[in-house]
Simulated scan of single mutants.
Amino acid sequence: MNRNLYLFDFDGTLTSKDTLFDFLKFSFPKTYNFNYLIFTPLFVVSKLKLIDAGKVKEKFISKFMKGLSVSEIDNLAQNYFEQNHQTLINKKANDYIKQISNYNDKFIVSASVDFWVKPFADYYGMGLICTKAKFDEQGIFTGIFATKNCNYEEKKVRIEQEIDLTFYDEIISFGDTKGDEAMFSISTKSNFRYFN
């Protein structure tokens, strides 16, 4: 029997929308619009690749969450998952993941930050490779990332660091943007916008 590895991008592949903005808007409804407005010029400049998108994302998330404890963030993430997962996850993706035999391994590989993606990975029994938040010794979010932004080439780097690919007969990946091309390059079968 073949042992397969399944790699799933998260935003726009498994989900119907970008979860960074959705999670922050859901969790911080009173301050979200004001902060988003302040950051709009930076989002535009990062889209034009004039500044690093990962750094803009780090600063934006920090604006809301710096200084929160692990348990406070876990509560926000769990609440977001419980209230939104049924409408957020693409039905075709949900059905596909649930029919993968436990003999095979499956991972979410995402540029999104671990704290709000982890409840989704746990729910589906999946491993998680993503951008990680940095906490201090007291378990307080420092406002910066512990890893590089897990997108483009970094997806490939992290997959190769965290998974022994020689263990698998097939590597089957799913993505929806140019940010997934490096992940596709190490796959035996790539699926672009498969669930859309």
Rank of each mutant, 00 (worst) to 15 (best):
S27C: 05
K25W: 06
T15N: 07
L5R: 02
F8H: 02
L20M: 14
F10E: 01
L7S: 03
K25T: 06
L5F: 04
L5Y: 06
N4K: 13
N35A: 12
L7G: 05
T31S: 15
Y32K: 02
F10Y: 10
L7I: 04
L20I: 13
T15G: 05
L37W: 12
D9L: 01
T40R: 08
P29A: 07
N4L: 05
L5C: 04
Y6Q: 01
K17E: 15
D11A: 08
K17N: 10
L7W: 00
T40V: 15
Y36G: 07
T19Y: 00
S16E: 14
S16F: 10
F34L: 15
L20S: 09
Y32E: 07
D22W: 11
F28C: 10
L24F: 13
N33E: 13
F8L: 00
T19C: 15
K17F: 11
F23L: 04
Y6M: 04
I38K: 13
S16Q: 11
F26V: 06
Y6V: 01
Y6R: 00
K17Y: 09
D11F: 07
L20E: 08
P29C: 09
N33P: 09
N35P: 03
L14G: 07
N4A: 12
L14R: 01
F10M: 04
I38Y: 12
N33C: 10
L14N: 04
S16L: 13
D9I: 02
N33S: 14
P29T: 07
L14W: 04
S27M: 01
T31R: 12
Y36R: 12
L5G: 06
K30T: 14
F39E: 02
N33I: 07
D18K: 08
Y32S: 05
F26A: 07
T31P: 00
N4C: 15
F23Q: 07
Y32F: 15
L24Y: 07
F39K: 01
L20H: 13
F39V: 03
T31Y: 07
F10I: 08
N33R: 10
Y6D: 04
N33Y: 15
D11M: 05
T31A: 12
D22F: 14
G12D: 03
N33A: 14
Y36S: 09
K25F: 10
K17S: 13
K30V: 10
N33V: 10
F34P: 02
T40I: 15
D22R: 04
F26R: 01
F8K: 00
D18Y: 11
N33D: 14
F28L: 06
N35T: 10
Y6L: 00
F39P: 03
Y36P: 10
D9P: 05
T31L: 06
L7M: 04
D11Y: 04
D22A: 09
F28W: 09
L7V: 06
D11E: 11
L5E: 08
I38T: 08
N33W: 13
D18Q: 11
S16V: 15
T13L: 00
F21T: 07
L24V: 11
F10K: 00
F21V: 05
I38S: 09
P29M: 06
T19H: 03
F28K: 09
N33K: 12
K25Y: 09
